[in-house]
Amino acid sequence: MTIIQLRVLLALKELGNFTEVGEKLGITQSAVSHALASFEKEIGITLFNRDRKGVVLTEGGQRIIDHVREIVGRVERIKEEASSLSGLKIGKISVGTLQSAAIRIIPGLMGVMRQKYPGIEISVFEGTDQEVQDWIHSETVDLGILTAPCQNLETIPLLTDRMFGIVPEDHPLAGCKTLSLDQLSSEPIIRALGNCGMIVASRFSQAGLSPGFKTIEARNISTISAMVRSGAGSAILAGLAVPRDTTGIRVIPIEPPLFRQIVLAAPKLQALSPAARVFVDLTREWMAGRFQDLT
């Protein structure tokens, strides 16, 4: 059993294709096949079913893949600890993030990380709040940037993100300096999925208001703004999610103010790898004083 065999298993689970795995790991397709066959022979079970479309885990493969991921993760930790002791900064980090943070926060962080720590490789996974939490719990990612509250995770506050009403430019409310939930409750509200949408729904409920919600998938923020432009309804978005291009729409603060809390989350912050701890420290430093216009 070798570390390259274990890396092949993880890559096959992720990509499902021998050619793509070879390209990712920098080895030939035949080397991928040999690594899998050798490992299956050693442990005595078939791990992947093969067909024309690629490979998928067998039941036995599904039962051991988490152990494989844990072993590879521990090997990476050993390398990172050794590099930390020697004064070098190398390693791999996987980060789950909301789309709004992927657009407004991650690019700046990636640029600074590359300048200061070129030996640290970062993978970014974009999803909803629930998806990011699931990725953290399943160890698909090391940590995540998402909206509080988080279940069974330790968090570090990053940003208090104010909510804004988004209306078409020809809407009767477009000239208002602020908007109340009461003003928005008489028409359809296009609500994003995730904790942000739940915060909005909860606040409407607390105020005894029942707007006509139209729930859409929040994977593409531009979809919400496009629907507002078309006159399909109005929206309530957090500041990070407000589109840069406001053509055809008006962005108006909600009063009384409505906020969401953006946090950095992990199962155990003290148990993070050296590379992940570098990312946490740099994120806190980089975020300090930024986005004050959203609070």
Rank of each mutant, 00 (worst) to 15 (best):
V68Y: 00
V68T: 07
V68F: 03
R69A: 12
E70T: 08
E70D: 13
E70Y: 01
G73P: 06
R74S: 12
V75K: 04
V75P: 03
E76N: 03
R77K: 13
I78N: 00
I78L: 06
I78F: 04
K79G: 01
K79C: 02
K79N: 10
E80N: 05
E81S: 01
A82F: 01
S84G: 12
S84N: 11
S84E: 15
S84C: 07
L85M: 14
S86H: 02
S86Q: 03
G87V: 00
G87Y: 01
K89R: 12
I90D: 02
I90H: 03
I93K: 03
I93V: 15
V95W: 05
V95T: 09
T97W: 04
T97A: 09
L98V: 07
S100C: 15
A101I: 06
A101Q: 14
A101L: 05
A102L: 04
I103W: 02
I103G: 03
R104A: 12
R104W: 01
R104M: 09
I105S: 06
I106E: 09
G108C: 10
L109M: 08
G111R: 06
V112C: 03
V112A: 06
M113Y: 01
M113G: 11
K116L: 14
Y117V: 14
Y117F: 15
P118I: 05
P118Q: 06
G119R: 02
G119F: 07
G119S: 05
I120W: 06
I120S: 03
E121F: 05
I122F: 01
S123V: 10
S123P: 06
E126K: 05
T128D: 08
T128M: 01
D129G: 06
D129N: 11
V132Q: 06
V132P: 04
Q133W: 02
Q133Y: 13
Q133L: 08
I136K: 06
S138H: 08
E139K: 13
T140A: 11
V141G: 14
L143A: 14
I145T: 11
L146F: 07
A148D: 08
C150M: 14
C150R: 11
L153A: 15
L153D: 10
E154Q: 15
T155C: 09
T155L: 10
I156L: 10
P157N: 07
P157G: 09
L158Q: 10
T160R: 10
R162P: 07
R162I: 02
F164L: 02
F164Q: 10
F164M: 01
G165E: 09
G165Q: 05
V167E: 08
D170V: 12
A174G: 13
A174V: 09
G175M: 04
C176K: 15
C176Q: 15
K177Q: 14
T178L: 04
L179G: 13
L179M: 12
D182N: 14
D182A: 15
L184I: 08
S186N: 14
S186W: 07
S186I: 10
E187T: 04
P188Y: 06
I189K: 08
I190Y: 10
I190A: 12
I190S: 13
R191V: 14
A192N: 13
A192F: 00
A192D: 09
A192L: 05
L193W: 00
N195T: 13
G197W: 03
G197I: 02
